[in-house]
Amino acid sequence: MRSKRQINIKKIVSTIILFFCSIAFLLPFIWMLSTSLKIEADVFRYPIEWIPSRWNALSNYQEVWFGDYPFYLYYWNSIKVAVLTTAISVIVSSLAAYGFSKVRFPAGAWLFIIVLATYMVPPQASLVPQFILFRYLGLFDTHFGLILLGSFSVLGTFMLRQFFLGIHNDFIDAAKIDGAGHGIIFWKIALPIVRPAVATYAILRFIWTWNDYQNPLIFLRTDALYTIQLAMQKFTTINGSFYTLIMAAAVSAILPLLIVFILGQKHVIDGIALGGVKG
């Protein structure tokens, strides 16, 4: 009895300590949100006003969304690029993952090693020739080029392959005896079984594409094609000292991600845990 109560007190104490640690992780976000609602003069007031005394939220967000750098346009660009990249990447990766795990062909093993080997290449090392190639192919400064860059994921292929390997071969042989080809088996049997893994990968790919700054920076030039991250950076450069506007832009850039993350929280955390443990 006594020991049980002791443990509970210990648990409460560590929860409280950890809660203070977690505040260090959340405070910058809270500061960002609260600043985005203030008027410019109150930004650096000290002690910090967590709940603004003078509100200016509407005009801040209006300026960000419909001002000189209209975020609705960049939002649309980002959504377009992120959704298409995710869709193509999921299709390409799951096809390849199925091919590498459930179709028994001798060249498969070798091709898989080649695919895995490319994972060692740091993306920046191939940047310059990629740039030259994309200029030559007319893919530079297009959304299509940007989408292509994110569509061939070794990580996605590897992750989904692990899950396809988990499907028992008897399933597939039984379907073959019934006369189903690999196309039907893939679509009707294998893919539905690994659906949770596909969801995890799709959420991660969406988040990564949404957050990508480097590829848009290098492969886009026209203002109207900018994605949200690039627009965010340009917006900051132009509005240098208008911190309320910058914070309103930052909130806008992070918000959809938070929604995706909170909706798919379990998928994301499980996916990362799984990838990490399997290593």
Binding site: V103, R104, S126, V154, F186
Partner: peptide
């Protein structure tokens, strides 16, 4: 069939990486 399944990935990786 194996080649068909993996070819989009192989093609993409070859061109992009």
């Amino acid at each position: 069939i194996g080649f068909l399944f993996v070819s989009p990935m192989i093609l993409g990786i070859s061109v992009i990486v």
